[in-house]
């Protein structure tokens, strides 16, 4: 299992790494949307799940999500938003734009592991 974590916070990426390692998976990290799209160009064939923050420099999560879903090479990879954005309208926007799952910070590591497993099982 290979997971791409896109989050500008080093701390959050470390927490995600811990959860992915619990599941014996591999993590690739990107610290903003632009970097994430560059990573996708190189690695998309191996990526099983994308965890995506919303508020990031250069290119925010919603823009990244739209670009991922507009590209036929990437659109089949499930995306879980992992964000502090908890307003209902934003959750709806993300789901409508193609996010498969939505996890609001704060979360426990157990919850994160469970949601990663669900996302992997369900796919898109």
């Amino acid at each position: 299992m290979k997971v791409l974590a896109i989050d500008d916070s080093i701390m959050v990426r470390k927490i995600i790494r811990g959860a992915v390692e619990v599941l014996d998976g591999n993590l690739i990290e990107a610290s903003d949307g632009i970097e994430a799209l560059e990573v996708m160009e190189e690695e998309y064939k191996d990526i099983d799940l994308i965890l995506l923050d919303w508020n990031m420099p250069r290119l925010n999560g919603m823009e990244v999500l739209k670009q991922l879903k507009a590209d036929r090479r990437f659109r089949g990879i499930p995306v879980m938003m992992v964000t502090t954005e908890s307003e209902r309208k934003n959750i709806v926007r993300a789901i409508q734009a193609g996010a498969a799952h939505y996890l609001i910070k704060p979360f426990t590591i157990e919850e994160l592991v469970k949601r990663i497993m669900e996302s992997m099982g369900k796919g898109e």
Binding site: G33, I34, N55, M56, P57, R58, L59, N60, E63
Partner: peptide, 9 residues
């Protein structure tokens, strides 16, 4: 030091 946030929020 000037910063602009990226993307359209």
């Amino acid at each position: 030091n000037v910063a602009w946030e990226g993307g359209n929020k």
